[in-house]
Amino acid sequence: MVNNTAMDPAQGIRKRKRTELKYGVLFAAPVLLGYLVFVLGPLAFTFALGFTEYSMVGSPKFVGFDNFVRLFTGKEPLFYDAVISTLYYVLVSVPLGIAFSFVMAMLLNSKIKGRAFFRGLFYLPVIIPLAASSVIWLWMLQPDFGIVNYLLGLLHIPKYTWLSSDTSVIPTLIIFSLWLTGNTMVIFLAGLQNIPAHLYEAIEVDGGNALHKAWYITLPMSSSIIFFNTVIGFVNAFQTFVQPSVMTQGGPNNASYLIVYYLFKEGFQFTKFGTASAAAFLLFLVILLCTAVLFKFSNDLVYYEGKERGR
């Protein structure tokens, strides 16, 4: 007699896959639940709140697109100040920070005396809490008794109003942002150490110099890391908050009123949560658009070993 109760092999495979899926979902459930509660939930709530008038007193009142109209028509003048200041800060600080950290990584990847010490030294600012770093820089840049102007005085250079001038406050914050490029530098350093040494040796055999090595080997082989750090840099720069909050409070004359600081003031000081939520959702769309544009051109700008560009 033939045993008809034997399980079909295909059926056994399907059962095993269902079991693996069940346990996979079970183990991933805490992360998925946390993402739903702490990311997607607040995002959806913020989007909904952007169509309301709400001041934490009473229930939200639906006002349609009024908050967005007010932002775009100039009825919230601080919003335009925040947008202009933020774009100025982001478009200058991100490329400058990428270039600075990449050059520093190349220097720290070379054979220099005390290399390990300098690597730790340049990474040290990342460990210091950002609020504490902001206070330290605020003291250093004081016009009258700050150490920076004191050193300039020793060189017979006039004192500079770093954070007290409309024209210099954003450039000063940009300079301060270079202090925080330790993470970016370490990522670049890890990528540089993975470049095969025989590629540089081939350049030397062909009579190339350090410039040829950097242009034909280092930059192409590091393009994927440059792309990654650029995306992260734009996302982080758009969300800058601690520096203007601690160092300038958005001044002078709203010149450093960055967008996240604007959201904080609108929501938690002026209790205009509807307007703040609408602006927050617009910020989300801008970051999403910038990221999409970067990914759109990534195939033409980023070199992946074993893959032709544009594919």
Rank of each mutant, 00 (worst) to 15 (best):
T271K: 07
S245D: 15
L96W: 09
L121K: 15
D66L: 01
L211Y: 10
P125M: 10
G24E: 14
H156A: 14
S164P: 01
I127Q: 09
Q193L: 07
S224E: 12
A99R: 08
P95H: 12
Y303M: 09
F176Q: 00
I170G: 01
L180D: 14
V293Q: 04
I98A: 00
T5Q: 15
G233M: 01
G182I: 04
P171K: 08
T73V: 04
W215R: 15
F241H: 01
L36Y: 10
A255P: 01
S223K: 04
K22N: 09
S223W: 04
F227W: 12
D144E: 15
A278E: 05
F273C: 07
T181N: 07
V57Q: 11
N149E: 04
K265D: 09
L141R: 02
R14Q: 12
R309Y: 09
F268N: 14
V302D: 01
K17M: 14
F27R: 08
A255H: 01
S177H: 06
L21K: 14
F227M: 10
W162Y: 07
N109G: 05
Y257N: 09
N183T: 04
V92A: 06
S165M: 04
V103T: 14
K307D: 14
I112V: 10
E76K: 00
F227A: 06
Y257H: 04
L91K: 10
